[in-house]
Nucleic acid binder design. Structure first.
Lengths: 242, 242
DNA sequence: CAGTGGTCTAGACCACGTG
DNA sequence: ACGTGGTCTAGACCACTGC
């Protein structure tokens, strides 16, 4: 028995099917919003029992790579601004309503990744990145100052775009086939320095929340690094833990 | 057909079994750390197929009410200081190691719930609460100032205890059969006032993270309300989102 | 109506931990 | 060797959606 067969034998069938389905989605064979084949056909195609095919699809569902719609089919997950906000936006106002600040965004600039970017984005030294600066507003008041870094290798030609949508993950998926599946936020409190104070129109020394976020794609590959300085006032950063 | 039968018929069998298992755990019939019956016996007892019994238990697993141990059995979830920290402690140091500050804790005081406590703990007006103050340290340095509020009704006799463990959720479960299944944190940045500055031995105005946490028990009942003021220095509050 | 996912059954055999 | 959970099979019927 070959080693490959040994490994295949040890890995449960439904996980093997799952892995091949992930590969088909990652390759773009089935694009965002498109239906994947019915479970019965997946079972036939991979020569497994219906229950096994279903277990494989269930794993995709729990990873949010696909969405089941009773009576209609199973569809590759597609970002919309709404569920992107519901899934990853953790800022709420005093009435617990999600707040989605909008704002102007600078054209991306190209540069060589610094040490932090290399570490957080797992890049080789001297890799190139795009950087974007955003000033986000809420009710006409400056709310957050953001710096976003993206590996150039994943987002070719981003520098030529001058219309960048506010919902970034939707953009990454639809234009670059980069699917954000997980993010990690790290928070601390800082005092506003002179730059932040000027941009956010507040006094130097005002306490701000600093949010560092790494967004991960398929295979836990980091795809975006972001630092936000937020003047929350009545807003809060909310995290639910189970 | 009666309405009750209508409802029972609509609710899937495995969910009905699940609900009855939850009731048995909530009632204390099966205590923390104790094994629940094997899936085959659950199937016999509730007159369902093994697969249905298994689906019911799987729901308990995903709610973290029980833990499966291959070859041994399925056990009612039991808090240990370790997994309590891993599950709900979101503070890490600059090396991404979890930090678990320890500290002295005042004897609980009894009082009438204020407006905030009534709202956050869903208490009737004039309900009584216990309040605990903690000063937590890290490497011998003051780190966080905490105020904890608990409904007296859920924790009878808490005021007489003078040895309160650091791992609170473990204590709630083992002594009061109150199982914390979910928490919600709300964060903002504040400047240290004179009290906080004195206790934390920092300058007035130092930016602090303020964490408000509500802990929920079975049935989404709020069981603990807490406010922490943290002087993080190199530490960070971390949240993973999927 | 046909086609999809959702539930349920009734087994079989494997993998793991304990005695 | 035994009992547990983990995987897998091969169906059946129900519930929902769209034609």
């Amino acid at each position: 028995m070959s080693e490959a067969n040994e490994a295949a034998r040890r890995r449960p069938l439904y996980q093997q099917v799952h892995d091949r389905l992930v590969a088909l989605i990652a390759s773009g064979e089935w694009g965002p919003g498109q239906p994947i084949p019915p479970e019965a056909e997946i079972a036939r195609r991979f020569r497994v029992a219906p229950g096994t095919a279903r277990a494989a699809v269930s794993a995709l569902v729990s990873e949010k790579l696909v969405v089941r719609r009773h009576g209609r089919g199973t569809f590759v997950y597609e970002y919309t601004p709404e569920d992107e906000a519901a899934r990853f936006l953790r800022l709420v106002d005093s009435n617990r309503k999600p707040i989605n600040p909008v704002g102007r965004m600078d054209r991306p600039t190209r540069g060589v990744a610094n040490q932090t970017e290399c570490r957080e984005l797992a890049l080789a030294e001297a890799s190139r990145v795009f950087r974007i600066k955003r000033l986000r507003e809420r009710n006409g008041t400056p709310f957050a100052l953001e710096r976003i870094s993206l590996p150039e290798a994943l987002f070719p030609g981003l520098g030529e775009r001058d219309k960048l949508r506010d919902a970034r993950y939707e953009l990454y998926q639809s234009l670059y086939r980069v699917l954000v599946v997980e993010v990690e936020d790290r928070l601390c409190a800082v005092a506003a320095d002179s730059t932040a104070a000027r941009e956010l129109k507040i006094a130097v020394g005002t306490p701000l929340i600093r949010i560092e976020r790494v967004a991960f794609g398929l295979g836990a590959k980091p795809v975006e690094w972001r630092v936000s300085l937020c003047h929350l006032t009545d807003a809060r950063y909310v995290a639910q833990l189970k």
